[in-house]
């Protein structure tokens, strides 16, 4: 999905005179990894330990405190039912992570074996049937596919995860298949083959570990993408059901208050940006480490 972002650092004639760049190089190289990693940890901590970070309940309504602005008691104000927005954002992170990690798992569990097998054996089935089905799935706008699936399966966290996960399968099949094609003719595989290694062992013990890093990058980016898709489904009312907090459904409600209480729309959006940015940076960081290793 994202091509090589960092390139390699092998000697280039700088168009400018040499400058002192002690440490900078190193920090920049790892900036994405560290900052992204920290942001992701924040999101995951918020999702896992939401109740510990707030005195409020995400669903307890308080009709005498609706639509309040920013205050010490409510850092991000309250919503139309008097619930603390910051609390709902924390619990929204939980919903978001449940859906996106669930969908990425589904994509991996189904997509990776298919990718391994099809890349390893290739042949007419792979070329004429499987890859064409994958093409067909990818030719359909991802969000619409998720929308149709969610409408078919009914709303809810589990079904949203399934709907998005099905959309991920082709991406993982392609990633893994591409890596397998690249790796399978390399010397170490040939060597293992010579020693009489069985195909299944070859795939699991030798091929799989070598495609782990690109797979990890892909998972990170898929989660970044999934957060936005989950929010879109939530916005359309197809993800977590009320009263469960979800960033997308918070945005849906906020739209009715755009002119009077814009904070209701701004806060969940910023939460989405934070989470997506974190995963994207982490993905970038992993990617550049991968490139370094390959050089």
């Amino acid at each position: 999905m994202h091509p090589n972002e960092t390139g390699s650092v092998v000697g280039i004639v700088s168009p400018q005179p040499l400058r002192v760049r002690i440490g900078w190089e190193d920090i920049r190289k790892r900036f994405s990894l560290y900052v992204g990693g920290v942001m992701v940890v924040f999101v995951l901590l918020g999702a896992l330990f939401a109740p510990f970070f707030t005195p409020y309940s995400p669903i307890q309504q308080n009709y005498s405190a609706v639509l309040q602005g920013v205050s010490m008691a409510h850092w991000l104000g309250t919503d139309n039912l008097g619930r603390d927005t910051f609390t709902r954002l924390l619990f929204g992170a939980r919903t978001s992570m449940e859906v996106t990690i669930g969908s990425a798992l589904l994509g991996v569990v189904v997509g990776v074996p298919i990718g391994l097998l099809s890349g390893f054996y290739q042949g007419w089935f792979d070329d004429l049937i499987l890859m064409r089905i994958i093409d067909a799935l990818q030719a359909f706008p991802f969000l619409i596919l998720a929308l149709v699936l969610a409408a078919m399966l009914g709303p809810g966290i589990r079904n949203a995860a399934i709907a998005i996960g099905i959309g991920y399968i082709p991406i993982f099949v392609r990633t893994v298949r591409g890596q397998v094609l690249k790796e399978k003719n390399k010397e170490y595989i040939e060597a293992a083959r010579m020693t009489g290694c069985r195909s299944s062992r070859l795939m699991i013990v030798h091929l799989l570990p070598n495609i782990m890093t690109p797979l990890l990058v892909q998972i990170t980016l898929a989660i970044a993408n999934g957060i936005v898709t989950e929010a879109s489904l939530g916005y359309l009312g197809l993800s977590a059901q009320p009263p469960t907090a979800s960033w997308g459904s918070m945005l849906q409600v906020a739209q009715g208050y755009i002119s009077t209480d814009p904070l209701m729309a701004i806060a969940p959006g910023l939460a989405i940006v934070f989470a997506v940015l974190g995963f994207n940076l982490l993905g970038d960081g992993l990617q550049s480490r991968l490139n370094k290793r390959q050089v």
Partner: peptide, 25 residues
């Protein structure tokens, strides 16, 4: 380079439909 790259990462992390809402506001 670093700043540009970081800004572009923010760019790809902002959901267009939310940006649309903010523009409307």
């Amino acid at each position: 380079d670093a700043v540009t790259l970081f800004v572009s990462t923010i760019g790809i992390s902002v959901p267009p439909f939310w940006l649309g809402m903010i523009f409307l506001i």
